[in-house]
């Protein structure tokens, strides 16, 4: 009954899908997996305890929190908003691309932002909509929603693909911990360096995608409004 060992994976999947507490889900999955493969409870607890201690490095990002917390208190977010707000006379696509670049830089420099409520809703979406209205006149609902989706998406691209460039990021440390637990000789600096190409590529892909959006809008409204397509 080798396949029974996969029950832990099943528990993780079901637990995450049902939005059960993640910590409890992971611990239950570990204990059940150990027990069905013939370990004693004490043995499972020993493995859990040993690797939890040896992988404390995955939580070392906590040491960066005081600095980031103080910067937040002293206007970090407000100043970032000022910077982005300086972007004028750009098309909707360019506004979104510039935001994605800033978001990616932020992620690579360890900024913990919740971009959607802090930037996209109050700032980026209004700027992109504004740029499109200046160029094309009134927008239909479909275009409005498309711009909203692109703004929200740019936050995800910037955040996801650049975050591993920071050696203290939770994801970077997870990779180090998991692989060193498997016996690889690896450190956070190597992982961060290997993450740079994808970060750069994601910006290029995002920029091309946003440029295509501009072109599409030009075609759509250029004919209708006779705008400067």
């Amino acid at each position: 009954m080798e396949a029974l060992k996969l029950i832990g994976i099943l528990i993780v999947i079901v637990g995450f899908i049902l939005k059960k507490d993640t910590i409890a889900t992971v611990v239950i999955a570990g204990i059940v997996t150990g027990l069905v493969s013939g370990m004693s409870l004490i043995e499972v607890l020993e493995i859990l305890g040993k690797s939890f201690i040896s992988q404390r490095v995955a939580t070392v990002f906590v040491l960066t929190l005081p600095v980031i917390g103080i910067c937040e208190r002293y206007g970090l977010k407000e100043k970032a908003v000022d910077l982005i707000g300086k972007v004028k006379n750009a098309t909707a696509g360019k506004v979104i691309t510039i935001y994605q670049i800033m978001r990616a830089l932020g992620a690579a420099f360890s900024l913990r932002l919740s971009g959607h409520p802090q930037f996209v809703r109050p700032l980026i979406n209004p700027m992109a909509q504004g740029a499109a209205i200046v160029k094309y006149g009134e927008l239909d609902k479909e275009t409005e929603d498309e711009l909203k989706a692109y703004c929200a998406a740019s936050d995800n691209y910037g955040n996801f693909y650049a975050q591993l460039c920071f050696i203290g990021a939770a994801g970077t440390l997870l990779i180090v911990s998991t692989l060193s637990e498997q016996g690889c000789d690896i450190d956070a600096l190597q992982v961060a360096m290997c993450s740079i190409p994808i970060a750069v590529i994601s910006i290029v892909v995002g920029a091309v995608n946003n440029h295509l959006l501009d072109r599409r809008l030009d075609r759509k409204y250029g004919k209708k409004q006779g705008g400067k397509a």
Partner: peptide, 25 residues
């Protein structure tokens, strides 16, 4: 509490390895 999730997942990986889950997959 999700801050300790990466660390805990690495420990889960260790249990999976010891149990031979990796071999089954």
């Amino acid at each position: 509490i999700t801050g300790i999730l990466p660390q805990l997942l690495a420990a889960l990986g260790a249990v999976f390895t010891a149990a031979g889950v990796g071999d089954v997959i």
